[in-house]
Design a protein around this nucleic acid. Structure first.
Lengths: 139, 139
DNA sequence: CAATTTTTTAGAATTTCTCTAATTTCTTGA
DNA sequence: TCAAGAAATTAGAGAAATTCTAAAAAATTG
C-alpha cells in the first residue's frame, strides 16, 4: 500500500522538520496522505477532520498546512483571488484549472514543459515554476 | 506617445464594451494606461486615485478593474492567497514573482515558451496559460 | 513526575473583496 | 433643455479567507 508508506514518510519528514507528531498533526497527515493524491482547501480539510471526529480548530489546520508546506510535504497552488489548494503531489508537475467548477487536475511534468526559462534576475534564484492552464466549458 | 494611444484605445474599448465613459472610469483609465505598463493592486490604484484628487470609492475601483478585465483591457494575476495584481499588459507573456518583495516582473512571450500543451479535457477549451516563476533572494 | 517547551484553541482581528440600497450621474427623446 | 429612465457610484455593511493573541493543554526532558 503505497499510501501507507507515504504516511510513514510524512512522519519521518515531520520529525525531520522538528515538528512533534501530535494527535492533530497525525490525524491531518492521515487524511492528507492515506489516499490518492489530492487537492484540498483548508476549509475542506477542516470539515473532513470534524467529520472524522478529530477535534481540531481551523487555525490549527492552517498552521499545519503551512508547516507541511514548509517541510516539503505539500505544495500550495493559488488559482484565483481567495482560493488556494494544497496539493499532496509535491513532484514537479503542473495544473489544469476548471474556472467554472473551481477544480484542479494534474498535468504530469512529462506532458508539458517550459522551455528556455530566462535567467533569474540578479541576486535571486528560482524557487518554483508554476504553470496553470485555465479551462472554460466549451460553448 | 504610445501611452496616449493606449488610453484612446481604452476609451474605444470601453465604448465597445457598452461601458459609459464616466468621470471615475476615465480617471482610472488614465492612471492605468497613461504610463508604462504596470502591475497594480486595487488598493494601490485606489490610493493613487485619492492622491490625484479623484473622488472614487474602493468598491468602484474593484468594479472598474473587473470591468476592464472582462473587456480585455487588463489581465488579473494572482500570485498568492489574498494577493492579486492587475496587469496593463494584456499581450501574451508571463511573470517573475519576487516572493520576498511581492513584486511582479514581465517575462516576454519570446523569452519563455510552454511546449507541448496537452489537449484540454473533453468539453473544455483553454482560456489562458499562466506561468509564474517564483523567485527568492539568493542566500 | 515536575519543569520546560511546544502546540492547540477559541475567538478576535485583519485583509481582501463583494453586496446593498440609496444617491448621483448619464443618456435619450420630447 | 428638461423630464424620465437607465446606469454608475457610494458608504457602509457583509462575506470569505486567513492570521493573530493569549490562555490552556499536551508533549518532551531531565
Amino acid at each position: 500500500m503505497p499510501q501507507r508508506r507515504q504516511f510513514a514518510a510524512a512522519l519521518e519528514c515531520l520529525r525531520g522538520a522538528g515538528l512533534r507528531p501530535t494527535r492533530q498533526r497525525l490525524a491531518l497527515a492521515r487524511l492528507l496522505f492515506d489516499q490518492m493524491a489530492r487537492h484540498v482547501s483548508a476549509e475542506q480539510l477542516h470539515a473532513e477532520a470534524v467529520a472524522a471526529r478529530v477535534p481540531v480548530s481551523l487555525a490549527t489546520v492552517y498552521n499545519t498546512l503551512h508547516q507541511f508546506t514548509s517541510a516539503g510535504l505539500l505544495r500550495e497552488v493559488v488559482v484565483e483571488a481567495g482560493r488556494s489548494y494544497f496539493d499532496t503531489n509535491t513532484s514537479q508537475h503542473h495544473h489544469f484549472y476548471h474556472e467554472e467548477s473551481g477544480s484542479l487536475q494534474d498535468i504530469a511534468a512529462s506532458e508539458l514543459s517550459v522551455s528556455a526559462l530566462p535567467a533569474a534576475p540578479g541576486g535571486t534564484t528560482v524557487a518554483r515554476v508554476d504553470v496553470i492552464v485555465r479551462l472554460r466549458n466549451r460553448r
